[in-house]
Amino acid sequence: MIAAALAFAAAAMIINVAPGLDTFLVLRTSIAQGRRCGMAAALGILTGCVLWGLATAAGLTALLTASHVAYDVVRICGAAYLVWLGATALWHARKKKPSEDVRPEPVVAEGRLAAFRAGVGTNLLNPKAGVFYMSLIPQFMPHGAPVFGTTVLFTAIDVVELAVWYWIVSGAAAALGERLRRPSVRRRLEQVSGVAFIGFAAGLLADRP
């Protein structure tokens, strides 16, 4: 079991650090709103990962590949949510600031809550996240090992790795964000983020199980 867990941890780490929607969300949120909001988004993503892992342990994620309808429903809802995030970012980018030298307002609890919701939404409405657990975990499961317990163990390993990775990403991004406090730069970031979210939505719509 130890050898299988180590092999899974190595494979999951390679996948986790690859650029993707979840990492982009943590990066963008940390730059624009600070590290606390970035970590709130990361916590939302990790919550989604835990739920996907538990669903995989219970055999529910098999429905995503067994049923094209179920996969398409999650996929289309996820794409719609990403379009909404992108449109919201582009709308915020249109807002005029009274002065280019005005510093942004401090991050409030509502900002962290919104970031957490965004993390949960982007993860749970992405069927690829469920397919990831369902397709990767069985490859490393030792023969005769309990399916539920081993799946939960591997999910926990993945979540811990992601937590460390997002902690590093949010810290670096927040430090960069301190140098990008001019409203004009923040508007440009929102524009880029809006286009990126819509691009992720297009990629999700083009995906097939």
Rank of each mutant, 00 (worst) to 15 (best):
G48R: 03
C49L: 10
D101S: 12
L6I: 13
N123E: 05
D72W: 05
H68L: 12
R75L: 01
A42L: 05
R112M: 15
A9I: 08
G144F: 02
L51Y: 05
A118Y: 01
V169H: 00
A40Q: 06
E178I: 05
L153N: 01
R75F: 02
V152G: 04
A18P: 06
A87D: 03
D72R: 05
L54S: 10
M141W: 03
L21H: 05
I45R: 06
A40D: 10
Q191K: 11
R117C: 12
A62M: 09
L6Q: 01
A173Y: 01
A5P: 02
I2H: 12
G78A: 08
L21D: 00
V69Y: 06
L82A: 09
F24W: 11
V160M: 07
S193A: 15
Q33M: 10
F197V: 11
S67N: 13
W167R: 11
L64N: 02
K95V: 14
A9H: 05
R103W: 10
L176Q: 00
L21K: 00
R28V: 04
A42N: 10
G199N: 04
C37I: 00
K128E: 10
Y133D: 04
H68C: 01
T56Q: 13
I157K: 12
T88K: 14
V195M: 08
D101G: 01
G59P: 12
A79R: 03
N126Y: 01
V131M: 05
S184P: 00
A3D: 15
A173T: 06
A118W: 00
F154L: 15
P98H: 07
S67K: 00
N123R: 03
V152H: 04
A80V: 15
A201S: 14
T23K: 10
A58W: 15
Y133N: 09
L124C: 03
A5E: 02
A163Q: 10
G171V: 03
R94A: 13
A93C: 14
E110I: 13
L205F: 12
I45S: 02
S184N: 00
L204T: 12
I2K: 00
V26A: 13
P209N: 14
C37H: 13
C77D: 02
Y71L: 13
A18D: 02
C77Y: 10
E105N: 11
G119V: 09
M134V: 05
A7K: 10
G86Y: 11
A172P: 00
V74D: 02
P142G: 04
I168R: 00
F154S: 09
S170M: 04
F148W: 14
A196V: 15
V131T: 07
F154N: 03
